[in-house]
Amino acid sequence: MESVQTLEPGGFTLADLDTLPDDGMRYELVDGQLLVTPAPLAIHQRVAGQLFLRLQPACPEELEVFFAPFDFRPNKQRSLQPDLLVCRSDDIGPRGVEFCPLLLAVEILSPSTRMTDLLLKRALYEEAGVTSYWLFDPEAEELTVLELVDGAYVERAVAKGNEIFQAALPFAVPVVPSELVRPVNAG
């Protein structure tokens, strides 16, 4: 009979994380704690797709845009998966971005992740030196833009509905929150 290994709470490692199944769930690791998030809802997927379609064509060739699941491992105790991210091409390793700060992390708020994204992930991205952190609330059609200044996030902009946010970081790109919640073919 095969022996089953159990882990003490808080005892998960990156090695343990790498053995988890590819089952549609999002697995993240924060200081030994495993965070498990169910597959995103349709609106979440739509926003991620629409935002990717805006970021990708504007992205300079030395940078890349990815969407979850794609690991950001800022240290040996953490593995996070922002909904979208922008990083330097040179910072990409076999398991994602390891030990290098992201230029942009984007989280799309949902009922199951709202508090994690607003509080925990904000603090983790800030500590990891992620230059820009965008939070998008699909229900409110609202984009909140935070930028790292002297090691702490400062709110740079809040764009709602049909307002245009003209990003400068990580590169120039206009974003209109109301357009992100529309189906691709709805223009």
Results as ranks from 00 to 15, higher is better:
P74F: 07
G24Q: 03
L34Y: 05
Q77T: 15
D31G: 13
Q56F: 12
P101D: 01
D90I: 11
L34F: 04
L84R: 00
Q81A: 05
K76C: 12
S89R: 15
F99N: 14
L148W: 05
C87K: 00
K121D: 02
R73N: 07
L85P: 06
T113L: 02
L80P: 04
V30P: 03
S110I: 00
R54L: 14
L80G: 05
Q77G: 14
D150V: 08
P40A: 09
G32K: 04
V47S: 00
V86W: 02
D16F: 03
D91E: 11
P38M: 11
P69G: 04
D23N: 12
E126H: 07
V36P: 08
D117L: 03
G129H: 02
Y125H: 07
G129K: 03
S132A: 13
P101A: 08
T113Q: 00
C59P: 04
V86N: 00
V30T: 12
E61V: 13
R95H: 13
L51N: 08
Q50I: 00
R114I: 05
P94Y: 11
F12G: 08
P57T: 03
G93Q: 08
A152T: 14
G49E: 09
A123E: 15
T116F: 11
R88F: 01
T13E: 06
P21N: 06
C87V: 05
R122N: 09
A68F: 03
R73Q: 12
L102S: 02
D90C: 10
D137L: 04
F67Y: 14
T116Y: 13
G32P: 10
P69H: 01
P94I: 12
L148D: 04
L124N: 00
T113K: 03
P69E: 08
I43L: 14
V145P: 01
P111Y: 04
I43T: 14
E28S: 10
Y133I: 00
D137V: 04
R78E: 10
P38N: 10
G151R: 07
L124E: 06
D31M: 08
L14V: 10
L124Q: 04
R122Q: 11
L143C: 07
F72W: 11
C100V: 10
C100R: 15
F52W: 13
V149F: 10
G93R: 08
Q77H: 15
K76P: 11
F52K: 12
Y27N: 05
E142S: 13
E147H: 08
F136C: 03
G24E: 02
D83M: 03
Q56R: 15
E107C: 01
L35V: 14
F67W: 13
S79E: 09
M25T: 12
Q33D: 15
A48Q: 13
E28I: 09
D18M: 09
L118R: 15
D91F: 10
